[in-house]
Simulated scan of single mutants.
Amino acid sequence: MIEKNTKKKVMLVDDHKIVRLGLKGLIEKDEDLTVCSEAASLKEMYDNLDETNPHIVLLDMQLPDGDGTEGVREIKKRNSDIRVLILTAYAEDFMVQESIKNGADGYLLKNVDGKAIVQAIHNVLHGLTVMDQKVQIIMSQSAKEDPFLSRLSEREQTILALVSQGKTNKEIGEKLFLAEKTVRNLITKIMRNIEVTNRTEAAGLWLKHMSRK
Rank of each mutant, 00 (worst) to 15 (best):
D67I: 09
G127N: 08
Q136N: 00
D81R: 12
V130I: 15
Q141H: 12
E74F: 04
R73D: 05
L125Q: 01
E92M: 08
L176D: 02
L125Y: 04
P64V: 06
K115W: 02
Q136E: 12
A179T: 00
A104N: 02
T182H: 03
N79P: 07
K115N: 15
L149A: 14
G166K: 06
D93Y: 12
L176T: 03
A89W: 01
R151K: 15
E156Q: 15
A89H: 08
R78I: 13
A120G: 02
E98D: 12
E70N: 10
I82N: 09
H126M: 08
D81Y: 11
I172C: 06
K115E: 15
K115M: 13
G106L: 04
D132I: 05
Q157D: 01
Y90E: 14
T168S: 15
K77W: 10
Q165D: 14
I82K: 11
K144A: 14
F94L: 13
L85F: 03
V135L: 00
T129G: 08
M131F: 15
I100N: 02
Q165A: 10
D132Y: 05
S80G: 11
L149T: 04
T182P: 00
G114I: 00
K110R: 15
I159W: 06
V72Y: 02
A143N: 10
V135K: 00
R155G: 09
L128N: 15
V112A: 11
F94Y: 12
L178Y: 05
V130N: 03
V163T: 06
K101M: 04
E174D: 13
L162F: 12
T168N: 05
F94W: 09
S150Y: 07
L160P: 07
F177I: 01
T88I: 03
V124I: 10
D113T: 08
G66K: 05
D93V: 14
E171N: 02
V163H: 04
I159F: 09
I117W: 04
R73Y: 10
K77A: 15
R78Q: 15
V84Q: 10
E174A: 12
E174C: 00
K76M: 13
K115T: 14
G71M: 01
F148P: 01
K181C: 00
K101A: 11
V112S: 11
S153W: 02
G127F: 02
I82A: 07
L178T: 04
E174V: 06
A89Q: 12
E156T: 11
I172V: 00
H126W: 01
Q141A: 13
D67W: 08
S140T: 13
L160F: 08
T69Q: 10
D67L: 03
V163Y: 03
I100E: 06
R78S: 07
I138V: 15
K167M: 14
L176H: 05
A143Y: 07
V124D: 05
V124R: 00
K76T: 12
T168Y: 03
P147G: 00
V124N: 03
A91V: 01
K167C: 11
G103Y: 11
R73W: 01
R151D: 06
M95L: 14
L160M: 11
K115I: 14
N169G: 07
L85C: 00
E156L: 10
E171P: 00
G68L: 10
S99V: 09
V72T: 03
E174G: 05
S164G: 06
K181H: 01
S99F: 04
D67F: 10
T182L: 05
I75T: 09
L109C: 09
K181L: 08
A143Q: 13
